[in-house]
């Protein structure tokens, strides 16, 4: 059964406490989502400083990293997401 196209898709952002890049990535992602795709993604922020083991699920190495789980294949965007165009291309929102 195909996923419901109107249900928000989940984006997982891995951060490490209050590091500058982590703070920056959170702020950038919130801005991109609200400006370019309001209501289509829901964001889950995972602080690996509090629970490092959660890195295992998506084999996270560098922080911050944004993971788009669906649609497959899984996509990872590494960095503070300050380049909005790069983020949008990787989320492939144009074709969807």
């Amino acid at each position: 059964m195909p996923p419901n196209p109107t249900a928000p898709r989940k984006l997982v952002l891995y951060v490490a406490g209050q590091t500058p890049k982590s703070l920056s990535a959170i702020a950038n992602l919130e801005r991109i989502c609200s400006e370019h795709m309001p209501g289509r993604y829901e964001i889950e922020v995972i602080d690996l400083k509090e629970n490092p083991r959660l890195a295992r699920e998506h084999s996270i190495v560098a922080i911050p990293t944004l993971v788009r789980e669906l649609p497959v294949p899984i996509r990872k965007i590494i960095g503070d997401l300050s380049d909005a165009d790069k983020v949008l291309v990787n989320l492939r929102i144009e074709g969807e």
Binding site: V15, A16, G17, T19, P20, K21, S22, L48, K49, P52, R53, A55, R56, I60, V61, A62, I63, P64, T65, I78, G79, D80
Partner: peptide
């Protein structure tokens, strides 16, 4: 320089190493 923390170690011994 787009990241400022790394996940080091594996097999239940993951640690976060910040490069701030």
């Amino acid at each position: 320089g787009e990241v400022d923390a790394l996940v080091v170690g594996a097999d239940d011994r993951e640690q976060i190493f910040t490069i701030e």
